[in-house]
Nucleic acid binder design. Structure first.
Length: 959
DNA sequence: CATGGTCCG
């Protein structure tokens, strides 16, 4: 593509996407008059000639002047350029040459992925002919930043952590947020924070420049958001150097069997089209493996052999040798001139970026031959056309992933069957054909109950286009979409940002630690749903990370306090730990009974997902099937061994994690140990590094355990320690308690082996992979509930009922002290203890129900109730008090509303009409079943004043 | 009795 002369941005209407013309480009803005906004220095860079030559071919180079002018005249600039524009590698260099890193200043670039941060820093250092001491990187566990560093690549989470230490980021002169279109949660938070930091720095006469780089033109969330940027930042558009990709839509869209459709399409491409790698997008591991198996059978690589040995280098060598004597297996070539008919698909089914004559002909021909009509042939093995089929997904072992980057054996076409990893994270060389099923698997969270599930949905148009682009990296390519253009046009343009789809308690805690109390006012590019913010706030209050809102006062004050609780001293400590708040709470409780290493290990193992390999996936062959079965048996045997018997088994799946990590480290954490025990080596290395990081984090908090290190020969915990660990786990997972339903409560067959949780009406079950699956303890806590065929608790640990009121007083409602058994004095603690009946209930989005109850009582919801207002014993605003402090009469109203999910008028009317249902009580748990009869509330031993007595916190709790 | 994509501190 020819170089275009740099155009002034203001004259190009496409380049400026702000809602108003950015005045900064037309006339100098006040910012440009500030002393250090425009560095006068120009830093020479001594690039190698070949580097210089390659750079000149990048479209972005012709935009250098435009970009630098925009940067110098505006505090914030958005740069849009698709992959291949070279923005990630070049923009930092422009800024460096313009002197933005002179006089002790830093240019920071954030990436959403670690590999990208490392790779980009290396590449830019090389291009600039500078040492890694100057162009460096920092990721979670490692970095090579020095005092000489001028250009710093990092992951977005790292910069967020730095803001905690130095809110103004005073060492930086420029911050570049790369890949902003991906809208990772940290990117979104960073943009919100940086919009504020930029104006604070301007006021201090130490301007900070912010560059937001995006691959798509979807930037309205940044430009049209006046809360974020009061003056819309200018948008500079940069061309990309990509080869044209012809897109072919299916005429019809298969309703169910998109896997089969993939198979047929790959067969046709392989049989009929010129050489070039094929990349198939599917949605999950199982699908990937079964398509691999089908394709390998259809186009085997070894005559009379299974493809099992394919991985072996020796086999490969022999194979090649034997092959070279015979006629080389040439890939099919079709004479394009013989195919000149019009496309069978409708005219609109061909869409492409730039098409030359050859492509035109090719595009039509491909449609003719690759129409989506049924074709029964293809299942017969055809060894004359060997296909090099490789699976690719994130959890695949790295060495197996690496195979896709190597050129395929001679005479074979590469076919990679991948999940969404191949869309953004990994770029496979040599792909000419993309087959896109148009689906993606995503995790969904129920905002009320927290239950998650995985669902396959249509991708967004942006996603589909990104997938198509993977075919044009090295030469012109083709993308076959297994759905019609009509279906495509119904796709949403962009997928919703992640921050709107997931729980946000971790983000809220981070923000509170930055003293952003009114989280609702934070300038999110796209705010999370209100319910998500409310439940995050409630969880953090329950964990003790936030100070409770005032219980008394005027309604206005109470409402003002809503969603603006300040952080507590405990919360500050929790925020220092780089793990989820529930786990951070466990760490905060960990320094007793010499349990710190165990808690750290459990927390690290719970944080790293998928410690164990999956053996239930379809195998590549019969042989592998048997192998998988054997491994599965061995692994479940090991898991039972690690869980142990008796007291240690009660720690359940957390004991398995502890045992697995302990055994693995004891053996030196070798790949061999991991392989034979079904552990993912990569995950275990990650656990090891996280243990190290958490150990430093905990001990650096002024602990009295100096010189603590991560012990590879960690002894198994004693019985007493295991019990303590169970209590710590309960304290962290307090809102995830479930009670076994049995005996007389078992009214319905569907409750067999089921558990009741406070928020769900339906039973939940212990996941069959849990070591407690057959144990069925009366009370458990769980890591998460995932809904598949049933609602399953994963990561389960047994708890004793009497721990609940002591450890989770904020979740409990206490009755008056009982006369029998009588109160007693405990000399050890110096306290009086008594028996009180108590009920457990998570304060579940209570606020929503509380506010609704308030308006209901005030007569706002039903006019006819308004006349009763004066008869009420207390003001309706008492409904806003903490759950535990409610009067029985107000509590019963609230409980009734919660149990029927009546948080709005319609829901209440529905509940009113519906027949009353019995099963497990109204959304509440009773911490002890007394077995004498239903309805009677059991007593539990609790301190008279319900403060956490037995577990002392790392920090003294609030006065 | 099992059904999970992919990233980040």
């Amino acid at each position: 593509m020819a170089l275009e002369p740099a155009k002034p941005v203001a004259k190009d209407p496409i380049s400026l996407l702000g809602s108003q013309p950015a005045p900064a480009l037309a006339s100098p803005s006040p910012a440009s008059q500030e002393p250090s906004a425009k560095p006068a220095v120009f830093i020479p860079v001594d690039r190698a000639p070949e580097v210089q030559e390659a750079r000149l071919r990048l479209p972005i180079l012709s935009e250098e002047q435009v970009i630098m002018e925009a940067v110098s005249e505006n505090p914030t600039v958005i740069v849009c350029g698709e992959t291949g524009s070279g923005k990630t590698t070049q923009v930092p260099q422009f800024l460096y040459e313009a002197g933005y890193s002179s006089s002790d200043g830093l240019i920071g670039i954030t990436e959403p992925r670690r590999v990208a941060a490392v790779a980009m820093s290396q590449r830019v250092a090389k291009e600039m002919n500078l040492s890694q001491r100057v162009v460096s990187y920092q990721i979670r566990y490692e970095g090579n930043v020095t005092k000489d560093t001028k250009v710093k690549f990092m992951t977005d989470g790292v910069l967020l952590r730095e803001i905690q230490k130095d809110f103004l980021l005073s060492r930086y002169k420029v911050v570049i947020i790369d890949e902003a279109h991906e809208r990772s949660v940290y990117t979104d938070i960073l943009i919100g924070l940086l919009s504020r930091i930029v104006s604070l720095r301007a006021k201090k006469q130490q301007p900070l420049k912010l560059l937001i780089m995006s691959a798509t033109l979807r930037v309205e969330d940044f430009t049209q958001n006046s809360r974020l940027f009061s003056v819309p930042p200018p948008v500079v558009k940069v061309d990309a150097r990509q080869f044209p990709v012809t897109v072919h839509f299916n005429k019809r869209t298969p309703l169910q069997d998109y896997s089969g459709e993939c198979f047929r399409k790959v067969c046709k491409i392989h049989r009929m089209l010129p050489p070039g790698g094929i990349l198939v997008f599917l949605t999950g591991q199982a699908e990937v493996h079964s398509l691999c198996r089908r394709l390998r059978r259809a186009f085997p690589c070894h005559r009379g052999r299974t493809e099992e040995k394919e991985d072996s280098v020796e086999e490969m060598r022999k194979f090649k040798k034997s092959r070279s004597k015979k006629a080389p297996a040439a890939l099919p070539r079709i004479d394009l001139d013989n195919y000149s008919a019009l496309p069978m698909d409708e005219g609109d089914e061909d869409r492409e970026s730039e098409m030359d004559e050859e492509d035109d002909a090719l595009g039509s021909d491909l449609d003719l031959d690759l129409g989506d009509e049924e074709n029964e042939e293809g299942e017969k093995p055809d060894a004359s056309l060997p296909l090099h089929v490789l699976p690719l997904y994130s959890l695949l072992a790295p060495e197996k992933q690496a195979q896709v980057f190597r050129p395929p054996p001679e005479g074979r076409r590469l076919c990679v069957v991948a999940t969404n990893v191949a869309e953004t994270s990994l770029t496979i060389p040599g792909i000419k054909y993309v087959v896109d099923c148009g689906k993606v698997k995503k995790r969904f969270y129920d905002r009320v109950t927290g239950v998650s599930s995985f669902r396959v949905t249509w991708v967004s148009q942006a996603s589909a286009d990104q997938r198509a682009g993977r075919a044009g990296r090295t030469e012109p390519g083709h993308c076959y979409r297994l759905y019609s253009s009509a279906v495509y046009s119904d796709f949403e343009k962009f997928s919703p940002p992640e921050i709107t789809r997931r729980p946000v308690e971790d983000l809220v805690l981070q923000m509170k630690a930055l003293n952003i109390e009114k989280v609702i006012n934070f300038p999110f590019p796209s705010p999370p749903p209100l319910e998500a913010l409310v439940s995050a706030e409630e969880l953090l209050i329950a964990l003790g990370a936030l100070r409770e809102p005032p219980q008394t006062g005027r309604v206005k004050q109470l409402q003002g306090a809503k969603l603006s609780c300040p952080i507590s001293p405990l919360g500050k400590i929790m925020a220092a730990f780089p793990v989820a708040p529930r786990y951070a709470k466990m760490l905060a409780l960990s320094q007793q009974h010499e349990c710190l290493p165990y808690v750290i290990t459990i927390v690290a193992a719970m944080t790293i997902r998928e410690l164990f390999e999956d053996f239930d996936r379809p195998a590549a062959s019969e042989e592998e099937q048997a192998q998988l079965k054997g491994k599965k048996a061995r692994v479940s045997q090991m898991q039972r061994l690690w869980a142990g018997q008796g007291p240690s088994l009660k720690l359940g799946d957390m004991m398995v994690l502890l045992g697995a990590v302990g055994a693995c480290e004891f053996s030196g954490c070798t790949p061999h140990f991991c392989d034979t025990n079904g552990l993912r080596y990569k995950a275990m290395m990650e656990v090891r590094r996280l243990r190290g990081q958490l150990t430093t984090a905990v001990t650096s908090l002024g602990s009295h355990t100096p010189g603590l290190f991560v012990d590879p020969k960690m002894k198994p915990p004693t019985e007493g320690q295991v019990t303590f660990l169970r209590r710590v786990v309960l304290a962290g997972l307090g809102d995830h308690v479930a009670r076994r339903i049995r005996g007389e409560e078992l009214l319905d067959g569907k409750w067999k082996n089921g558990y009741k949780t406070p928020l769900l009406d339906d039973p939940v079950f212990i996941h069959p992979s849990s070591v407690l699956f057959r144990e069925l303890p009366d009370f458990v806590v769980y890591q998460e509930i995932v809904e598949t065929t049933k609602m399953y608790m994963r990561g389960v640990s047994a708890v004793e009922a009497e721990w609940i009121p002591a450890l989770l007083p904020s979740y409990c409602h206490f009755e008056k002290p009982l006369e029998e058994p009588p109160p007693a004095y405990w000399p050890e603690s110096g306290r009086v203890v008594c028996h009180r009946a108590s009920t457990f209930s998570v304060p579940p989005h209570a606020r929503r129900y509380k506010h609704f109850a308030k308006f209901l009582l005030e007569g706002e919801v039903f006019e006819s109730l308004r006349c009763h207002r004066n008869c009420l014993l207390s003001s309706p605003s008492t409904m806003l008090k903490t759950w535990a402090k409610l009067q029985p009469r107000t509590e019963s109203l609230l409980k009734a509303l919660v149990s029927r999910k009546a948080d709005c008028r319609n829901a209440l009317q529905e509940a009113w009409k519906a027949p009353h249902r019995l099963p497990a009580g109204p959304g509440q748990l009773v911490p002890q079943t007394d077995g004498t009869g239903r309805g009677s509330v059991p007593a539990a031993l609790t301190p008279i004043c319900p403060t956490p007595g037995t577990l002392s916190l790392l920090c003294p709790s609030e006065p």
